[in-house]
Every structure is written in structure tokens, then in C-alpha cells.
Design a protein around this nucleic acid. Structure first.
Lengths: 229, 229, 229, 229
DNA sequence: TATGAATGAGCCTTCATTCAT
DNA sequence: TATGAATGAAGGCTCATTCAT
């Protein structure tokens, strides 16, 4: 129903987390831009294949058909190119918007469902990168912060939504909004992780259905009646 | 009914996952045993301080006040001593508390609550180790398998319980038991992770209360009535 | 008649035994080629001075006035640079001088003598390397095979020659050609070994004369008469 | 024919080369002697299996079912136990005696044949040890000297015999006795090496026959006539 | 900009030898 | 005598980073 294109009323939508300010200016010449792009593409490939830790800059340079010297023309370190790789995926993971707070539970369920579906689809497309971020976050505090920040944005948005649901009397008011939204976002992100990153390969529609139902139930919402669905 | 044959009635309870067979024979002399133990203790300390990847064997040896040669007397590699470290924590993560399947939802809630509480407490005691396992799992397939296996055991137990709840009509029968239990266990483990591993330091009782309520709601169970609580 | 198709009429002549395929591409720049060459030269020096086993890669690097890192830019291991060292000496050990099978024993003796002389001279130039190969062959099966292969080629050529001598009635037909040629090649190679490698430093001309006479006699050939010599 | 038992007139017979003086006194107690013996036996086994260089003292101790500490009770080093291992084989390789100088070439041939046969048989029994000595000789000057010394004794004995043959007019007087005997002993020792150590597994009788014939011919001796044999 | 050779700190691993019990 | 734990020098190898061309 509500798609990113139509006003973007989603639950999980998150803003950009990777700092948009370039550490260094992008190359001016077209040739330079091409070289940089091929390095980023090669890096993503190598990272996804070997993991961040087991990857070597020489491999990235070779994969990009350039030299290691050229690598350092565009990036200062492995961390920096990893940031660049993440940035590419960033836009794809951005699917902002929250379901409008409507009295009609039927509509709420539909928006929630669409939002979860969008999240799972985006995760699917970037699963390997998510695993990578997971890995790098265990080593590098900067990326750990990035990952926490990312989760926080999601959680905060959901929290706002939960609060509005509670205020309008649709959701169970006795639930702590923050902890609840943390729990609910964890639920979908882990589901996505197991399915796409660890390769359990579940049916996306089943995931969407189950998670939507669980959210709905968990918040103490009820579908309008036996006629629903 | 839903409890394992061994008589351990737990929701989250897991059997030993770290292979109990010693890779090499334990030292014969008391002195040797002491040295081995001090190495394991030192390793845990160093791992928790520096992370698995950034730790060096020489640091572990120094911390244990032995030589690097002595390290190799007892362990073949960093991986091997990490396994030993995990083994120490293993028993602690085994915990009791499975809710008996009773018709009385009140009682179910109480047992579920106890079970979740026990899980959170155990996680709290071993949080840093869990983070470590998370890290090592991103690099080493063996530990990734261990981690997946660990999650699977938890999920399976919860799944059995969910199924029995569905059979007895207490829980929503339209929910897929496997996916649901995966979602529910993810919820608590991530909550624990954020709180204890990432240092968000929430109140355990609040976590217990919220997660129990969410499970309860999510499964479509209802407390007896307004008199409850 | 007994000469190989390639037109190389030798008794001891051997083809290339060290695999010519480069394990890794040769350096592109002139500078790189110079460095690689200096490493090979340094390795030969260090190997001859300290033996293969007692040599250290750091010594080779230092001798070549480079860093250990540079060593690994060009070679993967001690074995690999040893192969490169052997390759340099390879061409030198290929030498001409196969006696044509003529009825005239006088001539046979002369060609045989020339062939043996060439062998001894080549051995003298590469004696230390031969000792090294001997050493490495006792540890590493690959080099043992190389050494056996080398000996086999020599033996086979001599065997062909012996057979042709037997066929033309010049040599004793009751001798087993294979065993006989193994014995005869062993004779000269050991003589060379004792003289040049172990430093007994005999007069080459005396060695040539004696070995030629022994081969001649052993095969039951006779010089034309008392006027010979 | 003259056998080792009957006055031992052999060609290759050599005296003891391993210094008989014990580096340390043999153990006094019977138990100590047993331990020492089992260590030597274990060492031979391990050396033959792994080579001298790749063998470890701990393996020898384990194979002997004792501790490394006990090893050092009886031996100071790997070299020392290797010496002890060689000593055991020494007696077996000792088969002294030279063919009596007789005018009758028929008899000479017979003695020579018996002598060569005895040599090959002894070599066969100790082939692996000979390979080991070869290896150790490339690393350790002491053992290189031992090996050279060993060869020298053989060569000297043969040289004496060759000289006597020349003096009595049986052998070609134009041959240099030293170089000739070096050549002839090399011939049989290498034949033995290829057959027993490198596993070419030739028929011993064929080796005996061929080498005897070659020696005979090479020295310019002739069997009494067409009636011979 | 592009290249790729050069660098060396840093970490791992082995195993002969010592020594306390 | 026997044991086996403890030691650490020695050497192998990696790879991010620098730099001359």
C-alpha cells in the first residue's frame, strides 16, 4: 500500500548514517571518477568474498585492475574504502516513512506489512554487506558506533510510532515504548539476518506475514473482527 | 509434555555445544593443571579486553605469567584456547525454568517470566564472552556453526513449547511455530545483547517484564482478566 | 645413431630438469629484475656458504641488500629461490660431446674422453651447487625426484650408447646395459664429487684419463694395439 | 671360496669408524641399560621414518616410552644418540678381509664376487641408515668426516688390493691405483644406494655379477679363457 | 595520476634444552 | 633415575603503507 514513492509512510525508514562529507574530495577528472568507482566495486566484491579482516588491499587493487599505489590516491585506508562501500548501499537501505496513525486497525496492519516487506527486501539486497558491517563493528569502534546509531534510528522511529499507537488507544499502554520498539526491531532484523545472511532462505512473504502478526499481537492490537482478512 | 526427556524443563535451556572432548589430554601434574587454568583465565581477560582479533598470544602468556612456549604446551592455537574459554562459561549458560503447560495462563506467565529472568541473568554474567563469540563467528566458520547451533537449540526448545501451547489452544494457531520461536528468541537475545554487551544497562526486571508481556501478547495468549497482575 | 633427435651428440648431456615455467611472473620493471637477480645471486652465495638448511632468509635478504619483505615479493619460500638458483646453473651443466659410434676404437676413446672431460669441467664449475642439491634432496622429496631424474637422464643416454656399442660388437655383450651404465655414470659423478665437492682436488686430466680407461676396459673394448696411446 | 668366516679375505672390509669411546659411561644398572637401549632403538625408528632433520627428541622419547628428561639422562644431544644408532649398525657393516693375491684369475674372481655380495647384503640391511648418514653428513662436519673416513678406509683397502694385482701382473699397471679404487668403490656403493636406498630394488645377484665383471674388466684382468665360468 | 617495488614492524610457531620435583 | 613442565631464542611470514619513477 504505502510505498516509498507515495509519501513514504514507513516504520523502519532511516536517514543516512554514513557521514556524507567526503573524507577527501571526489576526483575531478572523469577518468579519476571511473577509477575510484571501480575500486569501490572491487572492494565490495572482495569484502563480500573474503570478509573485511581476511581481505587484502592488494586484492582489491588487482580486482579493480589498478595498482596499490592508485588505491592510495583515492583512499587512505581499508576503513575508508569500507566506508565508501557502505555508502553505496546506504541509499538502498533508506526507505523512510512511518504508517500514518489512523484509527482503522485494518489500515495500520497494511501499512505495517508494507513497511516490513520493504525492510526485508532491502535487507535481502544488502545482506552480505550487513554481515560485513557486523564483522567490522566487532573490531572498529567507529563502525560499532555506526551500527548502534543505525539501530537507534530504527528503534526511535518505531518508538515514536508505538507511542502514537498507545496514545490513540490502539496499542497496549502498559508496554515500555523504548524497550518494546527495541524488541520489535530486533525481531525483524534478526529474522532477516538468519534468513538472508546465514542463508536459511525463508520465504519472504511468510516472514512478512509472521512478523507483522507478531508485532500486531505483541502491541495488543486487534484486527477489527472475525471479518478481517 | 514439551519438556526434554532429561527432565530439564526450560524454555531457553541449551545443552553443551562446545565439544567436550579435549583436543589434547589435560596435564597430568597439579602444577600443569594450575598453569593451564591460569592460561585460560588470562586468555579470557585478554580477549575481553582486546577482542579476539586484536589479542596476541604473547599477551596471554604474559598475563598468565608464563612463556609463549608454555602456551604451546597446552594449546595449539588462539582458536583452541578460545574454545577452552567458552567451555568454562558453558555450564553457566545452562539454566532451568521451563513453564509447564498448564491451562492456567497466570501460571504460564509466571514460569515464562522466570525463564526469561534466568536467561537475562546468565547473559549478563557472560555478556563479554557472548560479544567475543559474536566476533569470532564472523571470521571462523567453526565458531559460526557453534553460534548457529546454539541459537538453533534455543529456538527448537521454544518451538516445541510454542507448539504445545498451540495444541492446548492457549496460543494463536495461525502462527508458524518455527519462525515465531526464532523471532521470540531473537527478541530476548538481542535485548540482552544491547543491554549487557553494548552497555545500555537497562533494568533487568523491566526487561523481564516487557519481554514476557511481549511473548505473551505475541502468541495471542491473554491473562485471565483485569484482576490479573 | 645413438644421438638424440635434437642433434646433441653427448654421453652425459642432460636436458633441462628444473621446471622452466616460472612459479610467478618475472618482475616487469628493470629495477625489479635487478632486485630479483641480486636475490638469486645472494641466495647462491649464502647457500654455498652456510648450506641450505642452515641458511636463513634474512641472511639472503641482507646479502642482497634488501629487506625480508622484498624477498617475499619475488619468492614464496626458500625452496622456491633454491629452484631459481638451480635454474641458473642448469644451462651450464648441459654440455656436448657424444662419441659417434664408429668402428674405430681409437676414435671412440677420443670422443669418450672429450665427453668425460666436459662433464668434469662442468661439475667443477657447479660443484658446490651439486652438494647443495645433494643436501636438499635428502630432505625434500621434490628435489630428491629432481636429482633422481637428473641421474636417470644421464644413465639412459649412456645406456643407449652402451647398447649401440654392444650391437656393433665393440662392447661386451654379456653386460646388462642399464646396470652397467648406472655403474659407469656413478663412477664419474662420484669421482667428480670427491674431487670438487669434498675438496680432494685431483688433477682433472688424470681423472679424465683414468675414467676413460676404466669405461673402456669395463665395457671390454680394447684399444687397437700396443701402438695406441 | 673365501667367506667372512674363513679368514675373511674381503675387498671392502672396514674397521670401526664410529669412535668406540663412549662419550659417557654406559649405565650401570640393568634398568638403565634397558632404558638406554630402548632409546637407541626408538631413535633409529624415528630417524628412519622422519629423517634426522625432521625428527624431534620428544618423538624419540615417546617412541621409547620414556620422558624427554630421561633422554637427557643418557644422551647430550640429537647428534650423540645418532652416533649411538650408527654404532649399532657399525658391526654389521664391518666385514673385513681382502682377496688373497693369487695367480689364478678364476679364484680372484670368486673372491671378488663373494666380497661384493657381502657388501651388497650388508648395505641392504642398513640402507636407511646409510641414507641418514648421507643426510647428516651434509649438515654436520663431524659426520661428514666420518663418512669420508669410512669411504677412505674402503678405498684404501681396495687400493692395496689393486696395487698387489698390478704388482703381480694381473691388473693393468697403467691405472692410477688410488683413483681407480675410488672409482670402483664408488661404483658399488652407488649401485647399492640406488637399489636399496632409493628403492630401485634390483636383483642382488645381478648386481653382484655385473659389478664383479666390471671390476674385473676395468682392471684389465681376463678370465683364464673361453672355458672359464 | 598511475605504477609497483620496497619496507619492516609485528606476530606466529618450533623444539632443543633446562630444571624442579 | 625418571618425569614432564617451563623456557625463549630463532626464524618464518604477512601486508598495510611509503616512495621513487
Amino acid at each position: 500500500m504505502s510505498s516509498p514513492a507515495s509519501g513514504r509512510p514507513e516504520v523502519h525508514g532511516a536517514g543516512s548514517l554514513v557521514d556524507e562529507r567526503q573524507v577527501r574530495a571526489l576526483p575531478v577528472t572523469a577518468r579519476g571518477q571511473r577509477t575510484r568507482e571501480s575500486l569501490v566495486a572491487a572492494a565490495r566484491q572482495v569484502f563480500e568474498r573474503d570478509g573485511f579482516i581476511n581481505s587484502r588491499l592488494t586484492d582489491i587493487a588487482r580486482e579493480a585492475r589498478t595498482s596499490i599505489g592508485t588505491f592510495y590516491t583515492y583512499f587512505d585506508s581499508k576503513d575508508e574504502i569500507f566506508t565508501a562501500v557502505l555508502q553505496v548501499a546506504q541509499d538502498d537501505m533508506l526507505h523512510p516513512g512511518l504508517p500514518r496513525v489512523e484509527e482503522d486497525p485494518q489500515n495500520i496492519a497494511a501499512v505495517l506489512e508494507a513497511s516490513n516487506r520493504a525492510y526485508f527486501e532491502a535487507y535481502r539486497r544488502n545482506a552480505q554487506l550487513m554481515v560485513l558491517l557486523e564483522q567490522v563493528a566487532t573490531i572498529n569502534p567507529d563502525f560499532r558506533d555506526l551500527r548502534i546509531q543505525r539501530a537507534k534510528v530504527f528503534t526511535t522511529r518505531v518508538m515514536r510510532w508505538v507511542e502514537s499507537m498507545q496514545e490513540s488507544g490502539v496499542a497496549d499502554r502498559s508496554l515500555d515504548p523504548l524497550m518494546t520498539s527495541r524488541a520489535l526491531t530486533s525481531m525483524v532484523s534478526r529474522l532477516a539476518y538468519y534468513s538472508f545472511a546465514l542463508g536459511e532462505e525463508w520465504d519472504v512473504e511468510a516472514m512478512v506475514e509472521t512478523s507483522t502478526k507478531l508485532w500486531f499481537n505483541a502491541l495488543g492490537m486487534t484486527l477489527p473482527g472475525p471479518t478481517a482478512d
